[in-house]
Design a protein around this nucleic acid. Structure first.
Length: 479
RNA sequence: CGGGGCGUAGCGCAGCCUGGUAGCGCGCCUGCCUUGGGCGCAGGAGGUCUGGAGUUCAAAUCUCCACGCCCCGACCA
């Protein structure tokens, strides 16, 4: 019985995370180091994430396509900083059909190069622009240290790739996607994120500007939720993506790319979970409500199940994702704990007493114990359930935001910053110098997460060197 | 790649020091009993002890060599 309990988050956050992912059956380890099997429950969550995003991408004019997994190695080498950034983590295919290949192929670590190659063929005129394509796929990066969902050799994601006629349009697209992701993070994942700009040291290999959303996990560390890159003309020049403008002049395109991966599953776990297990935000939860029927005799079973099925239908018809727990020989108490561990936002308990009263017990996952339980009449159950789901969605966001605020320090001097990054975010004036950034990283292990888009204005003294600074930046230890 | 830990039943571990019939808990199967917060009882199935080599009458146990995984750093969505 003792080993049914998870380690608590405060005693070992990392172990809490690992065990929870395995026990809740979100994922499992694969035979190859660093690879992950996403199990049905985890994939169901990912499907809800992809649906919420895909709908937003399409609403902003993007279309989906599929580009190949294998890329000629020389493609990667065409963009100077891209090759420098990705070479160490490439998986290379050297043999095919029993023969050594004349030119090795790499398994895509990201698709800028192969898509750039295609765009060069497809784009001839300003009339062909903009090109707004997204793809859902998996990519491979030979990471040294892996962790389920957060960093695996192969990971699932989407990568959007766009080409534009002007620098301004490319920048607008890059920023538009930051807004789309921010909306998704806040309203679907219930995660407060800080949209911001990356430093030169932290930006994408081949980008002029990288924007990211940064989120605080339950242990105070930062996680990069997703990124959006303005690639300038770097890839356009490397792959000769050109168009004739209205004046008949040959111009290089301006391109962007933006991506979000299965890592956000890890973010959802680490932002919302508690010592009892997962807590999924209702809008993304595979099951929004689990019904636990309770009965002793066969006679009770018949009446309870009949009533339970009626409620199940009514809720499903109203658009609620319902799971009926019909497992036999397992006590209700076990099921309560089980669904709590699995993060289902609402639980509906139905026993003979409830049937008699034509009511149910609703238990909120975000409020443990009796406090979260309420008796609700069966009449109008769907409306009551939907309202509670909305409340939970909002409560999770509010709680995460309050937690982040409680662990974010406006660090005026270096001592403050050092202390702040031990437990959360430091928000400080930064002069923009890579030297200061590097020193801070070396001395505190805290890295420059982003320069928030929202700035207070004015100026102050750089937290490290004391020189005049006009921007504030977030420093934190990161995943 | 540096540091640490670990490979014994599906999972978690003991046994190893001091060599001699491979064990415990959970899970699983069958039956009974139970079911409103992680039920109970009885019976049962399940193992080339990560791999290889060596020492020995005898190796999970001692020696050497591989391999794998996890955790902590550097790198990263």
């Amino acid at each position: 019985m003792a080993d049914m309990k998870l380690p608590t988050r405060s005693e070992d956050f990392s172990e809490w995370y690992n065990q929870l992912v395995l026990r809740a059956e979100l994922a499992d380890y694969a035979p190859v180091r660093g690879c992950m099997i996403v199990r049905p429950y985890g994939w169901a969550l990912w499907e809800n994430i992809t649906a919420a995003l895909d709908q937003r991408f399409k609403a902003t004019g993007h279309v989906n396509a599929a580009f190949p997994l294998l890329i000629p190695r020389n493609f990667i080498e065409k963009e100077k900083s891209h090759v420098a950034g990705f070479s160490p983590e490439l998986a290379v295919v050297t043999h095919g059909g029993g023969e050594e290949l004349e030119e090795p192929l790499v398994i895509r670590p990201t698709s800028e190069t192969i898509i750039g190659h295609a765009y060069a063929k497809w784009i001839q005129s300003y009339r062909d622009l903009p090109v707004l394509i997204n793809q859902w796929n998996s990519v491979v990066r030979w990471e040294l240290r892996t962790k389920l969902f957060l960093r695996t050799l192969e990971f699932f994601w989407q990568e959007g790739h766009t080409a534009h006629a002007t620098s301004e349009e490319a920048e607008a697209e890059t920023r538009r996607m930051v807004d789309v992701y921010t909306d998704f993070a806040r309203n679907e994942a219930a995660i407060p994120v800080i949209p911001g700009r990356k430093s030169d040291a932290e930006k994408f290999a081949g980008a002029d500007i990288t924007y990211s959303l940064e989120a605080m996990m339950g242990d105070g560390k930062a996680l990069q939720f997703c990124t959006s890159h303005n690639l300038g003309q770097n890839f356009a020049k490397a792959f000769e993506i050109r168009y004739l403008d209205k004046n008949g002049t040959l111009q290089f395109c301006w391109t962007t790319s933006w991506g979000l991966s299965t890592r956000v599953v890890g973010a959802i776990i680490m932002v919302h979970g508690d010592d009892q297990g997962l807590i999924f935000p209702p809008r993304l939860a595979p099951y929004q409500l689990a019904i636990v029927p309770i009965f002793k005799s066969d006679g009770e079973k018949a009446t309870v199940m009949e009533n339970a099925r009626r409620l199940q239908r009514e809720l499903a018809d109203a658009g609620v994702r319902v799971k009926m727990d019909e497992r036999e020989g397992i006590s209700p108490g076990f099921k309560f704990n089980d669904w709590e561990m699995r993060g289902v936002p609402l639980r509906l308990e139905l026993g003979p007493k409830d049937v008699a009263k034509q009511s149910v017990v609703l238990a909120r996952r975000d409020r443990p114990g009796k406090e979260g339980k309420s008796f609700v009449a069966q009449q109008g159950i769907a409306a009551a359930v939907k309202q509670q789901l909305d409340e939970i969605q909002q409560a999770l966001f509010d709680r995460a935001l309050a937690f982040r605020n409680s662990r974010t320090v406006d660090a005026a001097d270096y001592e403050d910053l050092k202390k702040a990054v031990e437990s959360g975010f430091a928000n400080s004036w930064w002069c923009g110098s890579g030297d200061c950034e590097a020193k801070i990283k070396e001395e505190t292990k805290g890295t420059m997460r982003c320069i928030p888009l929202e700035q207070p204005g004015g100026s102050g003294k750089c937290v490290y060197c004391g020189k005049q600074a006009s921007e504030r930046a977030i420093f934190a230890k990161a995943y």
